[in-house]
Write a protein that binds this DNA or RNA. Structure first.
Lengths: 213, 213
DNA sequence: TAGATTGTTAATCGATTAACAATC
DNA sequence: TAGATTGTTAATCGATTAACAATC
Protein backbone atom coordinates (compact mmCIF):
# COMPACT_ATOMS: atom_id res chain seq x y z
CA UNK A 1 0.00 0.00 0.00
CA UNK A 2 2.32 2.74 1.17
CA UNK A 3 4.63 3.83 -1.61
CA UNK A 4 8.24 3.56 -0.63
CA UNK A 5 9.44 7.00 -1.76
CA UNK A 6 10.34 9.50 0.93
CA UNK A 7 7.36 11.65 1.83
CA UNK A 8 8.01 15.35 2.11
CA UNK A 9 7.25 17.29 5.29
CA UNK A 10 4.95 19.60 3.30
CA UNK A 11 2.69 16.64 2.69
CA UNK A 12 2.92 15.32 6.25
CA UNK A 13 2.00 18.66 7.78
CA UNK A 14 -1.22 18.67 5.80
CA UNK A 15 -2.31 15.25 7.03
CA UNK A 16 -3.53 16.34 10.48
CA UNK A 17 -5.63 19.00 8.80
CA UNK A 18 -7.19 16.48 6.43
CA UNK A 19 -7.79 14.33 9.45
CA UNK A 20 -9.67 17.11 11.25
CA UNK A 21 -11.82 17.96 8.25
CA UNK A 22 -12.64 14.33 7.66
CA UNK A 23 -13.59 13.92 11.30
CA UNK A 24 -16.06 16.79 10.97
CA UNK A 25 -17.53 15.35 7.79
CA UNK A 26 -17.86 12.00 9.48
CA UNK A 27 -19.58 13.59 12.50
CA UNK A 28 -21.98 15.35 10.16
CA UNK A 29 -22.93 12.09 8.56
CA UNK A 30 -21.21 12.71 5.23
CA UNK A 31 -20.41 9.35 3.66
CA UNK A 32 -18.44 10.20 0.54
CA UNK A 33 -16.45 13.21 -0.63
CA UNK A 34 -14.65 14.08 -3.83
CA UNK A 35 -11.26 15.76 -3.91
CA UNK A 36 -12.99 18.70 -5.55
CA UNK A 37 -15.44 19.30 -2.75
CA UNK A 38 -12.85 18.74 -0.03
CA UNK A 39 -10.53 21.17 -1.80
CA UNK A 40 -13.19 23.87 -1.71
CA UNK A 41 -13.84 23.38 1.98
CA UNK A 42 -10.16 23.41 2.85
CA UNK A 43 -8.96 26.10 0.48
CA UNK A 44 -6.60 23.82 -1.45
CA UNK A 45 -6.56 22.49 -4.98
CA UNK A 46 -8.16 19.14 -5.74
CA UNK A 47 -4.98 18.18 -7.50
CA UNK A 48 -2.94 18.66 -4.37
CA UNK A 49 -5.26 16.54 -2.29
CA UNK A 50 -5.11 13.65 -4.77
CA UNK A 51 -1.37 14.05 -5.07
CA UNK A 52 -0.97 14.04 -1.28
CA UNK A 53 -3.13 11.00 -0.70
CA UNK A 54 -1.49 9.05 -3.47
CA UNK A 55 1.81 9.29 -1.66
CA UNK A 56 0.38 6.59 0.59
CA UNK A 57 -1.84 4.62 -1.75
CA UNK A 58 -5.00 4.81 -3.81
CA UNK A 59 -7.71 5.37 -1.23
CA UNK A 60 -10.35 6.62 -3.66
CA UNK A 61 -12.60 5.16 -6.29
CA UNK A 62 -12.79 6.56 -9.79
CA UNK A 63 -16.08 8.20 -10.56
CA UNK A 64 -17.08 8.15 -6.90
CA UNK A 65 -14.56 9.88 -4.66
CA UNK A 66 -13.41 8.89 -1.21
CA UNK A 67 -15.33 7.11 1.54
CA UNK A 68 -15.05 9.56 4.44
CA UNK A 69 -14.89 7.05 7.26
CA UNK A 70 -12.36 4.91 5.45
CA UNK A 71 -10.09 7.79 4.49
CA UNK A 72 -10.27 9.11 8.04
CA UNK A 73 -9.15 5.78 9.45
CA UNK A 74 -6.44 5.46 6.84
CA UNK A 75 -4.92 8.85 7.63
CA UNK A 76 -5.08 8.07 11.33
CA UNK A 77 -3.06 4.96 10.67
CA UNK A 78 -0.55 6.82 8.51
CA UNK A 79 -0.06 9.30 11.35
CA UNK A 80 0.47 6.39 13.72
CA UNK A 81 -2.43 7.36 15.97
CA UNK A 82 -3.46 3.74 16.41
CA UNK A 83 -0.37 2.99 18.49
CA UNK A 84 -0.07 4.91 21.77
CA UNK A 85 3.50 5.86 22.60
CA UNK A 86 4.25 6.42 26.31
CA UNK A 87 5.30 10.00 27.01
CA UNK A 88 6.35 12.06 29.99
CA UNK A 89 5.90 15.79 30.52
CA UNK A 90 8.62 17.93 32.06
CA UNK A 91 7.81 21.25 33.68
CA UNK A 92 4.48 21.76 35.45
CA UNK A 93 4.39 25.55 35.24
CA UNK A 94 1.60 27.45 33.53
CA UNK A 95 2.34 26.03 30.15
CA UNK A 96 3.00 22.47 31.26
CA UNK A 97 -0.22 22.37 33.27
CA UNK A 98 -2.21 23.71 30.33
CA UNK A 99 -0.73 21.18 27.93
CA UNK A 100 -1.35 18.32 30.34
CA UNK A 101 -4.93 19.42 30.98
CA UNK A 102 -5.87 20.60 27.53
CA UNK A 103 -4.33 18.12 25.16
CA UNK A 104 -6.03 14.84 24.38
CA UNK A 105 -2.89 12.74 24.12
CA UNK A 106 -4.75 9.47 23.55
CA UNK A 107 -6.37 10.84 20.40
CA UNK A 108 -3.05 12.00 19.03
CA UNK A 109 -1.09 8.78 19.41
CA UNK A 110 0.38 9.17 22.90
CA UNK A 111 -0.20 8.15 26.49
CA UNK A 112 0.93 10.61 29.13
CA UNK A 113 2.36 8.46 31.92
CA UNK A 114 3.96 10.99 34.26
CA UNK A 115 4.58 14.67 34.92
CA UNK A 116 7.80 15.97 36.49
CA UNK A 117 8.97 19.20 38.02
CA UNK A 118 11.86 20.14 40.27
CA UNK A 119 10.16 22.85 42.30
CA UNK A 120 9.21 21.57 45.78
CA UNK A 121 6.08 23.74 45.78
CA UNK A 122 4.79 22.04 42.64
CA UNK A 123 5.81 18.46 43.38
CA UNK A 124 2.89 16.53 44.79
CA UNK A 125 0.22 18.70 43.15
CA UNK A 126 -2.33 16.84 41.09
CA UNK A 127 -2.79 17.59 37.39
CA UNK A 128 -5.59 15.70 35.69
CA UNK A 129 -5.41 13.17 38.44
CA UNK A 130 -1.67 12.67 38.11
CA UNK A 131 0.66 13.60 40.89
CA UNK A 132 3.61 15.76 39.85
CA UNK A 133 6.79 13.79 40.56
CA UNK A 134 10.29 15.01 41.40
CA UNK A 135 12.74 14.90 38.51
CA UNK A 136 14.92 12.35 40.25
CA UNK A 137 12.25 9.77 39.43
CA UNK A 138 12.55 10.32 35.69
CA UNK A 139 15.04 7.55 35.11
CA UNK A 140 13.07 4.90 36.95
CA UNK A 141 9.80 5.90 35.25
CA UNK A 142 11.33 5.83 31.80
CA UNK A 143 12.82 2.41 32.37
CA UNK A 144 9.71 0.89 33.89
CA UNK A 145 7.23 2.31 31.38
CA UNK A 146 9.48 2.18 28.37
CA UNK A 147 9.00 5.90 27.72
CA UNK A 148 10.15 7.05 24.30
CA UNK A 149 8.89 10.63 24.15
CA UNK A 150 9.23 13.73 26.32
CA UNK A 151 7.13 16.89 26.28
CA UNK A 152 9.36 19.82 27.24
CA UNK A 153 7.65 22.70 29.03
CA UNK A 154 10.76 23.86 30.85
CA UNK A 155 12.81 27.06 30.60
CA UNK A 156 15.40 27.37 27.89
CA UNK A 157 18.28 27.23 30.33
CA UNK A 158 17.18 23.89 31.74
CA UNK A 159 16.44 22.37 28.36
CA UNK A 160 19.96 21.98 26.97
CA UNK A 161 21.21 19.68 29.69
CA UNK A 162 17.96 17.81 30.24
CA UNK A 163 17.76 16.91 26.58
CA UNK A 164 21.15 15.21 26.75
CA UNK A 165 20.09 13.36 29.85
CA UNK A 166 16.81 12.19 28.32
CA UNK A 167 18.54 10.99 25.19
CA UNK A 168 20.87 8.94 27.37
CA UNK A 169 17.71 7.34 28.84
CA UNK A 170 16.70 6.35 25.32
CA UNK A 171 14.12 9.07 24.74
CA UNK A 172 13.84 9.35 20.98
CA UNK A 173 11.21 12.02 20.43
CA UNK A 174 10.61 15.51 21.81
CA UNK A 175 7.59 17.74 21.72
CA UNK A 176 9.46 20.88 22.52
CA UNK A 177 7.74 23.99 23.89
CA UNK A 178 10.95 25.45 25.28
CA UNK A 179 12.79 28.20 23.46
CA UNK A 180 15.78 25.95 23.19
CA UNK A 181 16.32 24.75 19.63
CA UNK A 182 16.88 21.00 19.80
CA UNK A 183 16.75 20.95 16.04
CA UNK A 184 19.68 19.43 14.25
CA UNK A 185 22.10 18.75 17.09
CA UNK A 186 21.17 15.17 17.76
CA UNK A 187 20.94 12.88 14.77
CA UNK A 188 18.33 10.15 15.01
CA UNK A 189 16.31 12.12 17.55
CA UNK A 190 12.90 13.26 16.33
CA UNK A 191 11.82 16.72 17.32
CA UNK A 192 8.65 18.69 16.88
CA UNK A 193 9.20 22.25 17.98
CA UNK A 194 6.32 24.44 19.13
CA UNK A 195 7.68 27.94 19.24
CA UNK A 196 4.68 29.99 20.33
CA UNK A 197 6.73 33.17 20.40
CA UNK A 198 7.77 32.67 16.79
CA UNK A 199 4.16 32.21 15.82
CA UNK A 200 3.14 35.43 17.54
CA UNK A 201 5.95 37.35 15.87
CA UNK A 202 4.81 35.98 12.53
CA UNK A 203 1.38 37.41 13.21
CA UNK A 204 3.01 40.73 14.01
CA UNK A 205 4.73 40.62 10.64
CA UNK A 206 1.52 39.82 8.82
CA UNK A 207 -0.18 42.80 10.44
CA UNK A 208 2.74 45.09 9.68
CA UNK A 209 3.19 43.98 6.10
CA UNK A 210 -0.52 43.49 5.49
CA UNK A 211 -1.04 47.23 5.80
CA UNK A 212 1.26 47.88 2.84
CA UNK A 213 -1.03 46.13 0.39
CA UNK B 1 15.62 49.69 2.08
CA UNK B 2 12.91 47.09 1.92
CA UNK B 3 12.67 45.62 -1.55
CA UNK B 4 9.20 45.85 -2.95
CA UNK B 5 8.76 42.26 -4.15
CA UNK B 6 6.38 40.03 -2.24
CA UNK B 7 8.18 38.11 0.47
CA UNK B 8 7.37 34.44 0.72
CA UNK B 9 6.05 32.90 3.92
CA UNK B 10 8.98 30.47 3.95
CA UNK B 11 11.29 33.42 4.46
CA UNK B 12 9.04 35.12 7.03
CA UNK B 13 8.77 32.02 9.18
CA UNK B 14 12.55 31.89 9.47
CA UNK B 15 12.83 35.47 10.71
CA UNK B 16 11.76 34.82 14.33
CA UNK B 17 14.33 32.06 14.52
CA UNK B 18 17.08 34.34 13.24
CA UNK B 19 15.87 36.85 15.79
CA UNK B 20 16.24 34.37 18.64
CA UNK B 21 19.69 33.26 17.60
CA UNK B 22 20.85 36.84 17.21
CA UNK B 23 19.49 37.67 20.63
CA UNK B 24 21.57 34.88 22.14
CA UNK B 25 24.69 36.00 20.30
CA UNK B 26 24.09 39.54 21.47
CA UNK B 27 23.64 38.37 25.07
CA UNK B 28 26.88 36.45 24.80
CA UNK B 29 28.73 39.54 23.72
CA UNK B 30 29.26 38.48 20.09
CA UNK B 31 29.66 41.61 17.99
CA UNK B 32 29.86 40.34 14.43
CA UNK B 33 28.84 37.15 12.66
CA UNK B 34 29.23 35.85 9.14
CA UNK B 35 26.48 34.06 7.26
CA UNK B 36 28.73 31.02 7.29
CA UNK B 37 29.05 30.83 11.05
CA UNK B 38 25.39 31.60 11.64
CA UNK B 39 24.45 28.91 9.13
CA UNK B 40 26.45 26.33 11.07
CA UNK B 41 24.83 27.25 14.34
CA UNK B 42 21.33 27.19 12.89
CA UNK B 43 21.65 24.21 10.58
CA UNK B 44 20.97 26.17 7.40
CA UNK B 45 23.08 27.09 4.38
CA UNK B 46 24.93 30.40 4.34
CA UNK B 47 23.41 31.03 0.96
CA UNK B 48 19.92 30.83 2.33
CA UNK B 49 20.65 33.25 5.13
CA UNK B 50 22.09 35.83 2.73
CA UNK B 51 19.22 35.27 0.32
CA UNK B 52 16.68 35.69 3.12
CA UNK B 53 18.19 38.86 4.53
CA UNK B 54 18.56 40.42 1.11
CA UNK B 55 14.81 40.26 0.66
CA UNK B 56 14.75 43.23 3.00
CA UNK B 57 17.99 45.01 2.21
CA UNK B 58 21.74 44.71 2.44
CA UNK B 59 22.41 44.55 6.15
CA UNK B 60 25.92 43.13 5.91
CA UNK B 61 29.32 44.37 4.96
CA UNK B 62 31.48 42.59 2.43
CA UNK B 63 34.54 40.98 3.92
CA UNK B 64 33.19 41.46 7.44
CA UNK B 65 29.80 39.91 7.95
CA UNK B 66 26.87 41.27 9.93
CA UNK B 67 26.88 43.41 13.05
CA UNK B 68 24.87 41.29 15.49
CA UNK B 69 23.16 44.10 17.38
CA UNK B 70 22.24 45.93 14.21
CA UNK B 71 20.87 42.88 12.42
CA UNK B 72 18.88 41.96 15.51
CA UNK B 73 17.28 45.39 15.60
CA UNK B 74 16.62 45.32 11.88
CA UNK B 75 14.81 41.98 12.00
CA UNK B 76 12.79 43.18 14.99
CA UNK B 77 11.66 46.14 12.92
CA UNK B 78 10.83 43.95 9.92
CA UNK B 79 8.69 41.78 12.19
CA UNK B 80 6.97 44.91 13.45
CA UNK B 81 7.96 44.33 17.06
CA UNK B 82 8.67 48.01 17.62
CA UNK B 83 4.97 48.85 17.39
CA UNK B 84 2.72 47.32 20.07
CA UNK B 85 -0.67 46.32 18.74
CA UNK B 86 -3.48 46.15 21.34
CA UNK B 87 -4.86 42.64 21.68
CA UNK B 88 -7.55 40.88 23.70
CA UNK B 89 -7.62 37.26 24.79
CA UNK B 90 -10.80 35.20 24.67
CA UNK B 91 -11.21 32.12 26.80
CA UNK B 92 -9.58 31.92 30.23
CA UNK B 93 -9.52 28.15 30.56
CA UNK B 94 -6.34 26.15 31.03
CA UNK B 95 -4.91 27.18 27.72
CA UNK B 96 -5.96 30.83 27.83
CA UNK B 97 -4.52 31.25 31.32
CA UNK B 98 -1.25 29.66 30.27
CA UNK B 99 -0.93 31.85 27.19
CA UNK B 100 -1.74 34.99 29.18
CA UNK B 101 0.74 34.10 31.90
CA UNK B 102 3.46 32.59 29.84
CA UNK B 103 3.72 34.73 26.75
CA UNK B 104 5.65 37.96 26.77
CA UNK B 105 3.35 39.90 24.46
CA UNK B 106 5.30 43.16 24.74
CA UNK B 107 8.41 41.52 23.32
CA UNK B 108 6.49 40.09 20.40
CA UNK B 109 4.81 43.25 19.19
CA UNK B 110 1.55 43.20 21.18
CA UNK B 111 -0.04 44.62 24.29
CA UNK B 112 -2.60 42.42 26.01
CA UNK B 113 -5.31 44.81 27.17
CA UNK B 114 -8.07 42.50 28.39
CA UNK B 115 -9.10 38.89 28.97
CA UNK B 116 -12.65 37.66 28.48
CA UNK B 117 -14.63 34.58 29.38
CA UNK B 118 -18.31 33.79 29.59
CA UNK B 119 -18.22 31.38 32.50
CA UNK B 120 -19.44 33.06 35.72
CA UNK B 121 -17.00 31.02 37.80
CA UNK B 122 -14.05 32.42 35.85
CA UNK B 123 -15.18 36.03 35.44
CA UNK B 124 -13.56 38.20 38.10
CA UNK B 125 -10.53 35.96 38.56
CA UNK B 126 -7.19 37.66 38.21
CA UNK B 127 -4.68 36.54 35.61
CA UNK B 128 -1.35 38.33 35.64
CA UNK B 129 -3.02 41.15 37.49
CA UNK B 130 -5.83 41.47 34.95
CA UNK B 131 -9.39 40.76 35.93
CA UNK B 132 -11.24 38.39 33.60
CA UNK B 133 -14.16 40.31 32.09
CA UNK B 134 -17.53 39.06 30.84
CA UNK B 135 -17.81 38.77 27.08
CA UNK B 136 -20.50 41.42 26.91
CA UNK B 137 -17.77 43.99 27.54
CA UNK B 138 -15.83 43.01 24.42
CA UNK B 139 -17.40 45.61 22.19
CA UNK B 140 -16.80 48.52 24.54
CA UNK B 141 -13.21 47.45 25.19
CA UNK B 142 -12.40 47.08 21.52
CA UNK B 143 -13.82 50.49 20.72
CA UNK B 144 -12.15 52.30 23.60
CA UNK B 145 -8.72 50.70 23.20
CA UNK B 146 -8.77 50.39 19.44
CA UNK B 147 -8.13 46.66 19.62
CA UNK B 148 -7.10 45.09 16.32
CA UNK B 149 -6.12 41.56 17.35
CA UNK B 150 -7.78 38.71 19.24
CA UNK B 151 -6.18 35.65 20.78
CA UNK B 152 -8.65 32.77 20.58
CA UNK B 153 -8.41 30.16 23.33
CA UNK B 154 -12.03 29.10 23.09
CA UNK B 155 -13.65 25.81 22.04
CA UNK B 156 -14.16 25.11 18.39
CA UNK B 157 -17.93 25.41 18.63
CA UNK B 158 -17.75 28.93 20.03
CA UNK B 159 -15.11 30.09 17.57
CA UNK B 160 -17.14 30.18 14.36
CA UNK B 161 -19.67 32.74 15.56
CA UNK B 162 -17.29 34.78 17.70
CA UNK B 163 -14.94 35.27 14.79
CA UNK B 164 -17.73 36.85 12.73
CA UNK B 165 -18.64 39.08 15.64
CA UNK B 166 -15.05 40.19 16.21
CA UNK B 167 -14.55 40.97 12.55
CA UNK B 168 -17.64 43.17 12.72
CA UNK B 169 -15.89 45.03 15.57
CA UNK B 170 -12.97 45.66 13.21
CA UNK B 171 -10.64 42.99 14.57
CA UNK B 172 -8.22 42.31 11.75
CA UNK B 173 -5.86 39.69 13.16
CA UNK B 174 -6.31 36.41 15.00
CA UNK B 175 -3.90 34.29 16.96
CA UNK B 176 -5.99 31.19 16.84
CA UNK B 177 -5.51 28.31 19.29
CA UNK B 178 -8.98 26.90 18.69
CA UNK B 179 -9.48 23.89 16.46
CA UNK B 180 -11.67 26.00 14.23
CA UNK B 181 -9.98 26.75 10.92
CA UNK B 182 -10.40 30.48 10.31
CA UNK B 183 -8.08 30.12 7.36
CA UNK B 184 -9.35 31.32 4.05
CA UNK B 185 -12.96 32.23 4.82
CA UNK B 186 -12.47 35.91 5.51
CA UNK B 187 -10.44 37.86 2.99
CA UNK B 188 -8.37 40.68 4.42
CA UNK B 189 -8.31 39.08 7.86
CA UNK B 190 -4.88 37.95 9.00
CA UNK B 191 -4.70 34.66 10.83
CA UNK B 192 -1.96 32.77 12.55
CA UNK B 193 -3.17 29.33 13.51
CA UNK B 194 -1.60 27.38 16.38
CA UNK B 195 -2.88 23.87 16.05
CA UNK B 196 -1.16 22.06 18.91
CA UNK B 197 -2.98 18.85 18.12
CA UNK B 198 -1.69 18.91 14.55
CA UNK B 199 1.82 19.39 15.85
CA UNK B 200 1.51 16.42 18.19
CA UNK B 201 0.15 14.22 15.41
CA UNK B 202 3.08 15.24 13.25
CA UNK B 203 5.41 14.04 15.97
CA UNK B 204 3.50 10.77 16.02
CA UNK B 205 4.08 10.43 12.29
CA UNK B 206 7.79 11.14 12.63
CA UNK B 207 8.09 8.42 15.27
CA UNK B 208 6.10 5.96 13.19
CA UNK B 209 7.87 6.66 9.93
CA UNK B 210 11.25 7.19 11.57
CA UNK B 211 11.37 3.54 12.51
CA UNK B 212 11.20 2.48 8.86
CA UNK B 213 14.57 4.02 8.05
C1' DT C 1 -23.42 2.83 -21.36
C1' DA C 2 -22.37 7.80 -20.06
C1' DG C 3 -20.74 10.68 -16.45
C1' DA C 4 -17.81 11.42 -12.85
C1' DT C 5 -13.72 11.36 -10.57
C1' DT C 6 -9.70 9.14 -9.58
C1' DG C 7 -4.50 8.07 -10.14
C1' DT C 8 -0.62 9.59 -12.55
C1' DT C 9 2.24 11.88 -15.85
C1' DA C 10 3.78 16.31 -17.65
C1' DA C 11 4.23 21.37 -17.14
C1' DT C 12 4.81 25.16 -14.21
C1' DC C 13 6.05 27.54 -10.54
C1' DG C 14 8.72 28.68 -6.46
C1' DA C 15 12.37 27.92 -3.16
C1' DT C 16 16.99 26.51 -2.22
C1' DT C 17 21.70 26.05 -3.37
C1' DA C 18 25.85 27.14 -5.94
C1' DA C 19 28.89 30.29 -7.98
C1' DC C 20 31.17 34.48 -8.47
C1' DA C 21 31.89 39.34 -9.25
C1' DA C 22 31.67 43.38 -6.22
C1' DT C 23 33.70 45.51 -2.38
C1' DC C 24 34.89 46.28 2.36
C1' DT D 1 47.03 45.38 -1.04
C1' DA D 2 45.24 40.57 -0.01
C1' DG D 3 41.68 38.05 2.24
C1' DA D 4 37.18 37.62 3.49
C1' DT D 5 32.53 37.76 2.89
C1' DT D 6 28.76 39.95 1.06
C1' DG D 7 24.92 40.75 -2.57
C1' DT D 8 23.20 38.83 -6.61
C1' DT D 9 22.73 36.07 -10.68
C1' DA D 10 22.34 31.41 -12.53
C1' DA D 11 21.50 26.42 -11.81
C1' DT D 12 19.20 22.99 -9.38
C1' DC D 13 15.94 20.99 -6.89
C1' DG D 14 11.33 20.21 -5.07
C1' DA D 15 6.48 21.21 -4.67
C1' DT D 16 2.26 22.54 -6.79
C1' DT D 17 -0.86 22.70 -10.54
C1' DA D 18 -2.74 21.18 -14.91
C1' DA D 19 -4.11 17.71 -17.98
C1' DC D 20 -5.83 13.42 -19.24
C1' DA D 21 -6.13 8.48 -19.74
C1' DA D 22 -7.88 4.82 -16.75
C1' DT D 23 -11.85 3.08 -14.61
C1' DC D 24 -15.64 2.79 -11.43
Amino acid sequence: MAKSERISMSVIRRLPRYYRFLYDLKENGVVRISSKELSQRMGLTASQIRQDLNCFGGFGQQGYGYVVEQLYAEIGRILGLDVLTPAILLGAGNLGRAVANHMDFEQKGFRLVAIFDDSPSIIGQKIRGMEVLPTKLIEETCRRQNVKVAVLCIPKEAAASIVEYLISLDIRGFWNFSHFDIGHHYPGVLVENVHLGDSLMTLSYKLTAGGEK
